[in-house]
């Protein structure tokens, strides 16, 4: 276990999750879906780390692995404790994890299925408080009302059931539940993807306000690059279970180093119609590769416009390019790719 930089809250090292593919009567394992394969990154205290990629790139799995919703196949998750020490939570058992769960929470994508329809807001938001024995019934009720006010809902709503609320409001209930235990880290898995643009923007602003107020650290997972540009300090780009590029937001949008990032960026809609012509569109050929049967060498080579024979044969390493940038591409030094904002 190596030491963490002082400002790092979470360090993920060599994270792997391989789901077995089982077949037949005896559930023989005939292969593995490499949903997450050797992912490493750090999240600094108080920052928002954005994780982007297409559907099936493994970004949600990363979040669930960090929160230990799944067991890891391999890897380390170092989590800084309130006393300043580092704890590897990757091998803890469920009972040992319980105190850690107070410090890390999740906001879910689907505001409908993530709230138990048979519980009132008091029971829903109060559940983590009850589990961790935070106060009497009256105190929990007060705290739930306080949390509702915090996310912009009326405290009188405590005895209502989730079906009384719209998608955006439900998402706020989910945020209130995540905040109940005063966590230091929140993973937001496509937290606003299911919402209308205007409602999504409100909730994003709410998340930013809360971050400022409580010094929260976010892992923000989305496929929407314009959203991630707005909220993130740094961004990791994932493709078929691997991190292909990590960079500060500004730098990534100005000058991507990986051809896949360039293609993703060129798909961001340009609001100014006159500027639209000036933009180069890089249309990706084909579908994202199957993580159960990933292409040889660089997984992106079948879709890459710059691919060479070396890309087919040799798996590129995630290389440090300086200025906090990392890229997994053989040709990163030679390519000159276009971003969407002027450098």
């Amino acid at each position: 276990m190596t030491a963490l930089a002082d400002d790092t809250l979470i360090s993920v090292r060599g994270l792997k999750k391989h789901f077995p593919i089982q077949k037949g009567w005896l559930q023989r394992v005939v292969g593995h879906v490499k949903a997450v394969d050797d992912v490493s990154f750090d999240i600094k205290r108080g920052e928002t780390f954005g994780l982007v990629g297409e559907s099936g790139s493994g970004k949600s799995t990363v979040a669930r692995l960090i929160l230990r919703a799944y067991t890891l196949t391999a890897g380390e998750i170092l989590f800084r404790q309130p006393d300043g020490s580092n704890l590897d939570i990757s091998t803890l058992r469920e009972a040992e994890l319980r105190p850690i769960r107070e410090q890390m929470q999740m906001i879910f994508q689907d505001p409908y299925s993530s709230l138990n329809p048979r519980m009132t807001l008091l029971d829903l938001i109060g559940e983590p408080l009850i589990i961790h024995g935070r106060g009497s019934q009256g105190e929990i009720r007060d705290r739930v009302q306080e949390l509702l006010t915090l996310v912009g809902l009326r405290p009188e709503y405590v005895s209502r059931y989730p079906h009384a609320f719209s998608g955006g409001q439900r998402q706020r209930i989910g945020i209130a539940r995540a905040l109940a235990l005063n966590p230091s880290f929140i993973a937001a898995d496509e937290a606003v993807s299911a919402l209308d643009v205007s409602v999504a923007a409100q909730n994003i602003n709410l998340l930013q306000d809360l971050q400022e107020k409580f010094g929260l650290t976010y892992l923000f997972i989305t496929h929407d690059l314009s959203m991630v540009e707005h909220i993130s300090n740094r961004i990791g780009v994932m493709y078929v279970g691997r991190l292909v590029e990590v960079a500060p937001t500004e730098a990534l949008f100005a000058k991507p180093l990986h051809p896949y990032t360039e293609a993703l960026l060129s798909a961001v809609p340009e609001p100014d119609p006159r500027a639209r012509h000036a933009r180069k569109r890089v249309a990706l050929k084909g579908e994202i590769a199957d993580p159960a049967n990933a292409p040889s060498g660089c997984a992106f080579h079948p879709r890459c416009a710059y691919a060479t024979d070396r890309c087919k044969a040799e798996v590129p390493e995630l290389r440090d390019m300086g200025q906090g940038r990392k890229v997994r591409c053989h040709h990163a030094d030679g390519l000159s790719l276009t971003g969407v904002i002027p450098a």
């Binding site: 929160l67 319980r98 999740m106 879910f108 993530s114 983590p128 961790h132 989910g174």
Partner: peptide, 26 residues
């Protein structure tokens, strides 16, 4: 596989609590 069961688990709920409070009532 419901998200709310996962949410309860991530809040530290025990298996017993998940089954009795979340799964059986549904």
């Amino acid at each position: 596989n419901e998200d709310y069961v996962m949410a309860a688990r991530l809040s530290g709920a025990s298996e017993f609590r998940i089954i009795t409070k979340h799964m059986l009532p549904a």
